[in-house]
Design a binder for these strands. Structure first.
Ligand SMILES: [Mn+2]
Ligand SMILES: [Mn+2]
Length: 548
DNA sequence: ACGCAACTGCTAGAT
DNA sequence: GTGGGCACGG
DNA sequence: ATCTAGCAGTTGCCGTGCCCAC
C-alpha cells in the first residue's frame, strides 16, 4: 500500500495555503477582520518567510533557537526570520521565564554558561547544572550566542484548524500522510457549501470547551478542587447543540468524579446534576447511598428506569435498586438477570503460561490446529463486516455529513440523525441481506476496491481476505443482519464487547470465543452482546483458562 | 475523532 | 559506547 | 474462604538523529 512518493519542495507551505484558502472561502462571514487579515498578511510574505513560519508552527516549540534551524529549501533563513519579526509573525519571547530559555540549552551550553573552569562539572547531571545557574542568578539572555524565535498568532491558526478539520486533533500532518499514501480517505462528495459550523457562537464555545477540557485534566491531576469548581462555573450554555452538550457533559462527569475522590460529595452532586450524560446519574445515586440518603438515591434510580440514556444505565439501575429497596423496606424487585455460564456455553482449558504471549493468543494457537482455523479479532470482525456491508450508506451524500477530505466517517455517525437520514437505505440493505445474495457480491467487490481506505469500522490489518472469506461462508446472513441491527440501534455503545476469537472448524459452521484468563471476567458490554447472541442463536463459548 | 477500548491486578465488603 | 526518550519530518 | 464490584493504570504511522544518563 505505501508507495514511496516524492513530495514537492515546500509541500508543507502548499498544505498550509490550502487550509487557509478553504477556511477563507467557506467561513468568510464568521471571521473577524483580524482573523481574515492573518491569512491575507501571510500570503503577502515572501516565499522563504512563509516557509519558515509554517516550519515553526508545525513544531512543538514554543521557542526555537536560531542556530538550530536548518532548512535546505529556505534559502536565506536570517532574512526570512527578520521579515517574520517585522510582521509580528514571530517574536523573541522576551516575556518567557528563564526556566523556559534554559530548556533550550544543551548540557554543553550550560557548562559554558557557568564558565567554572576550576571544577569538572561536565559530568554532573543536567538538573545540577540548572540548579547552579539558578542560584547564580545571572542574566542569561545577554550571554546566549543565538537568537530566540517564538511563532505568534497561533490562536488564529488554531481557529483555522478547527474550521478546516472540525476538530483540533488533526493537523497539517494529515496532508502529508495522505500524500504519502499512509492514510487513504474515501472520495465522498463534499458539497460546495460544506461547513460544520453555521454560527460563530458555536465555534467560540467549541474552542472554550476545548480549553476547559484541557484545564480540567490538569486540575484533576493536580487535585485542585478550587480550579475544578472554577471550570464548572466557566462552562458555556450549550442549548441545542448536541456536540457542545456532549463535550460539556464529559467535562462535568470528569470533574464530578474527581470531587468524589476528594469526598466533596455535595459539590460532586451539584456538578453531576448539570450533566445529562451517563454515568452522571449512576454516580449521583451511588453518592446518595453512601450519604445514607436512600430515598433520594432510589428516586434517581427510578428516573433512570423511566428514561435510561442507554442499556448500561438501565442495567445499573436494575442492579442497584434491590439493595436500596431492602434497606428502605420496600418490596425488593428483580435484579439484573446474570449471564449463566454452564457446560453448554463455557469450558475450561489448561494451557502452559507464557508471560510474553497474551492469553487470547495462547487460546487462539490452541484452537488453530489441524481441525480448525481460529482468529483473534475482538470487535474488528463484526464491525469490519458492518463497515463493508454498509460502505456506500456510511459514505452516502447526506447534507452536512462531509466537509473535508480527511474524514473516516460522516459527522452524524453517532447521532440519531445517522439512522434517520439514511433510513430507507438501511432498511433496504437489511432486507436485501435476508432475501438475496447480491449484497455478498457487492461486499467482496467493496473489499477489493476499498482495501486500505479509512473507514471507522474497518481495520484492514485485522480483517484479512482469509478471515473475510471464511466469515462470509460460515456466518449465516441472518446472524449478520441481527448483529448489524443491534449495532445500528446504538452504534456508540454497541461497537464494543464482541468476543476475542472466532473459530471456524474445518467441518463447517463457526463459533465466537471469549477468552477469560485467571482473574478476568465478563464485562458488562460483553454480557450484553452474549445475551444478544442467545436471542439470535449465534454460537459462542466463554473459554476459561487455567495455567497448567 | 477532542479520550476510547480492552485488559489486568488490586482492595473492600458481602456471603 | 550505548540505550532510552522523544521531537522531527517525509 | 470465596465471590463480586469498583477502581486505577496501560497503549495507539515509523525511521532517524539528538540529547542525556549510565
Ligand atoms: Mn478481549
Ligand atoms: Mn477476553
Amino acid at each position: 500500500m505505501p508507495v514511496p512518493v516524492d513530495l514537492p519542495v515546500g509541500y508543507y507551505r502548499d498544505n498550509f495555503l490550502a487550509l487557509l484558502d478553504f477556511v477563507r472561502e467557506q467561513y468568510a462571514d464568521i471571521l473577524t477582520a483580524e482573523e481574515t487579515a492573518y491569512a491575507d498578511r501571510f500570503i503577502d510574505l515572501t516565499l522563504d518567510a512563509q516557509r519558515l513560519y509554517v516550519r515553526l508552527v508545525s513544531r512543538r516549540g514554543p521557542l526555537f533557537r536560531s542556530d538550530k534551524l536548518h532548512y535546505a529549501e529556505i534559502l536565506d533563513l536570517p532574512s526570512a526570520a527578520r521579515e517574520l519579526l517585522a510582521g509580528n509573525f514571530v517574536d523573541h519571547g522576551k516575556d518567557e521565564d528563564d526556566s523556559v530559555i534554559l530548556a533550550l540549552l544543551t548540557k554543553a551550553d550550560l557548562v559554558a554558561l557557568i564558565g567554572d573552569k576550576t571544577t569538572a562539572i561536565g559530568t554532573l547531571p543536567r538538573s545540577d547544572l540548572l540548579d547552579r545557574v539558578n542560584t547564580a542568578a545571572v542574566d542569561i539572555r545577554p550571554q546566549l550566542h543565538f537568537e530566540i524565535y517564538r511563532p505568534l498568532m497561533m490562536e488564529y491558526l488554531r481557529l483555522y484548524r478547527l474550521l478546516f478539520f472540525g476538530n483540533l486533533s488533526q493537523d497539517l500532518t494529515q496532508f502529508v500522510l495522505t500524500d504519502l499514501g499512509l492514510l487513504n480517505y474515501e472520495k465522498y462528495v463534499i458539497s460546495a457549501d460544506a461547513r460544520l459550523f453555521k454560527l460563530r457562537e458555536v465555534v467560540d464555545k467549541t474552542l472554550l470547551l476545548h480549553e476547559l477540557n484541557e484545564s480540567s485534566h490538569a486540575a484533576v491531576e493536580q487535585n485542585d478542587r478550587e480550579a475544578l469548581l472554577e471550570i464548572v462555573a466557566l462552562l458555556p450554555d450549550s442549548e441545542q447543540e448536541t456536540t457542545l452538550i456532549r463535550r460539556k457533559n464529559r467535562i462535568l462527569n470528569r470533574i464530578g468524579r474527581q470531587l468524589e475522590r476528594q469526598q466533596d460529595y455535595p459539590n460532586a452532586l451539584l456538578v453531576y446534576a448539570q450533566s445529562s450524560a451517563p454515568p452522571a446519574r449512576e454516580r449521583s445515586a451511588r453518592i446518595l447511598r453512601k450519604l445514607a440518603l436512600l430515598p433520594q438515591s432510589y428516586a434517581l434510580c427510578q428516573s433512570i428506569q423511566g428514561d435510561p440514556a442507554d442499556e448500561a444505565e438501565l442495567e445499573f439501575a436494575t442492579r442497584f435498586m434491590p439493595g436500596l429497596q431492602k434497606k428502605i423496606g420496600l418490596e425488593v424487585s428483580e435484579g439484573l438477570s446474570p449471564v449463566l455460564l454452564d457446560d453448554n456455553n463455557s469450558l475450561l482449558v489448561s494451557l502452559p503460561h507464557d508471560e510474553a504471549v497474551r492469553v487470547e493468543e495462547s487460546v487462539r494457537t490452541y484452537y488453530d490446529n489441524h481441525a480448525s482455523r481460529c482468529y483473534y479479532v475482538e470487535n474488528h470482525l463484526f464491525l469490519g463486516l458492518f463497515g463493508l456491508a454498509f460502505w456506500d450508506i456510511i459514505f452516502m451524500s447526506v447534507k452536512g455529513a462531509f466537509f473535508n477530505r480527511y474524514q473516516s466517517s460522516p459527522t452524524d455517525l453517532y447521532t440519531p440523525a445517522f439512522q434517520s437520514a439514511r433510513q430507507t437505505a438501511i432498511t433496504d440493505r437489511l432486507a436485501e441481506m435476508k432475501n438475496s445474495d447480491r449484497w455478498l457480491d457487492v461486499l467482496h467487490e467493496t473489499y477489493a476496491e476499498k482495501l486500505g481506505v479509512a473507514n471507522r469500522f474497518v481495520h484492514w490489518q485485522v480483517l484479512s481476505e482469509e478471515i473475510l472469506q471464511l466469515s462470509l461462508q460460515r456466518i449465516p446472513a441472518s446472524h449478520l443482519a441481527h448483529v448489524f441491527e443491534r449495532l445500528l440501534w446504538d452504534l456508540r455503545n454497541n461497537r464494543s464487547g464482541f468476543p476475542d476469537l472466532v473459530l471456524f472448524p474445518d467441518c463447517g459452521s463457526y463459533q465466537l470465543l471469549e477468552v477469560k484468563g485467571p482473574g478476568d471476567r465478563l464485562q458488562d458490554n460483553q454480557k450484553r452482546w452474549i445475551r444478544a447472541f442467545e436471542r439470535f442463536g449465534i454460537p459462542y463459548r466463554v473459554v476459561n483458562v487455567a495455567w497448567s
